[in-house]
């Protein structure tokens, strides 16, 4: 402490005050003004202001169990109806689904039985495509990491499909949850869940406050270094998304929304996909028509190399990070 400047001391004071304010003590129930026994027979002369204490986890669980019991009863009624009525669509649905499942299992077993032996030279995986990727991948894509060259250059269209799958999953969850919010009374839901205020644990808060910047930094490093070392958009994006989820879990919704929320995620994902499609459309159109695309491949091994792989990796990383975070926060935040 003694070596710090005046401003540094102020920052440390601010941090300790903040930690103390968010410590794990639960404030007791305060009733104002205090009750007096002699006022008992005189009716209500003054209004009582009750400041409720924060709900403990156990009380929340008790409420939740009640809701789950109601849901289970309803579900049992539906299933009972299906069992009593022989012509109900539920029965046909069950029959059709079991037959369909058995057929899929049969097809998969036949396919596995007909596969070539592992490592045999006749296997389709040993054809000239794989050899070409390994032999001339560095020259043609400029990426030292041949996996990045494969998924973001030779097979970039496939990777676009994967990113769109993630985007579609998020959009579907948004639609489904909006429907749920419309059907139920929103106040009922908020009474149970409330606005998530973060974990009531001092050690977790301090440790995450220290490590959170390094987690995000490491994720960014893996995304940017994707064409030079193992990693890339998918793994780096997953690390960034997990870091954001950790931040939300520990510090709560209000603090987390200073960085990012679901609406920003939606825009970032759509933007990332749009940039990906635009860049790759240009490269495919010029390449297919034999026009020079003027994208420099750079010196292999330096950070600005690999042509389009570097920006495409960033796009994929943004999409993956936003998917991980928004799929988490869609199920916890009710205000979005």
């Amino acid at each position: 402490m003694s070596g710090l400047s005046e401003e540094g001391k102020k920052d440390v004071k601010k941090f300790t005050d903040w930690v103390n304010a968010n410590s794990e003590e639960i404030p007791p129930e305060i009733v104002y003004p205090p009750k007096h026994d002699d006022h008992h027979g005189h009716g209500h002369e003054h209004k009582e202001i009750v400041i409720p204490h924060e709900e403990t986890l156990r009380e929340k669980m008790a409420k939740r169990e009640h809701i789950d019991e109601n849901f289970q009863e309803e579900w049992q009624n539906v299933m009972q109806k299906a069992n009593d009525d022989p012509s109900s669509p539920e029965r046909w649905y069950r029959l059709a689904s079991s037959i369909g499942g058995a057929l899929i299992v049969l097809v998969l077993l036949i396919t596995v039985a007909n596969l070539p032996r592992f490592g045999s030279p006749d296997a389709p995986a040993m054809n000239e495509v794989a050899r070409r990727y390994l032999e001339s991948g560095l020259q043609e894509t400029g990426a030292v990491n041949s996996v990045a060259g494969m998924i973001l250059d030779y097979r970039a269209f496939d990777t676009l499909g994967e990113s769109v799958v993630l985007f579609t999953a998020t959009v579907t969850v948004i639609f489904l949850l909006q429907q749920k919010e419309r059907n139920h009374n929103k106040e009922d839901i908020e009474a149970v869940d409330g606005n998530y205020k973060g974990i009531r644990s001092l050690p977790a808060k301090v440790i995450v406050a220290i490590t959170f910047p390094f987690i995000i930094l490491y994720g960014i490093y893996i995304v940017l270094n994707g064409h030079l070392s193992p990693g890339g958009g998918f793994s780096g994006g997953a690390i960034i998304g997990a870091g954001l989820v950790l931040n939300h879990l520990v510090f709560g919704q209000e603090f987390s929304e200073k960085f990012i929320n679901v609406n920003k995620c939606k825009k970032l994902m759509a933007g990332g996909l749009f940039v990906y499609i635009a860049l790759k459309t240009y490269s495919i159109l010029t390449g297919a028509n034999g026009i020079n695309s003027h994208i420099p491949l750079g010196k292999a091994g330096s950070i600005f190399s690999g042509g389009l792989i570097f920006p495409l990796n960033i796009c994929v990383g943004v999409v993956v990070a936003c998917t991980v975070f928004s799929l988490y926060s869609l199920f916890t935040d009710w205000s979005s």
């Binding site: 644990s201 050690p203 977790a204 440790i207 220290i210 490590t211």
Partner: peptide, 8 residues
């Protein structure tokens, strides 16, 4: 850093 906090 992480193991004690997770256990806690």
């Amino acid at each position: 850093l992480s193991n004690p906090v997770a256990s806690h």
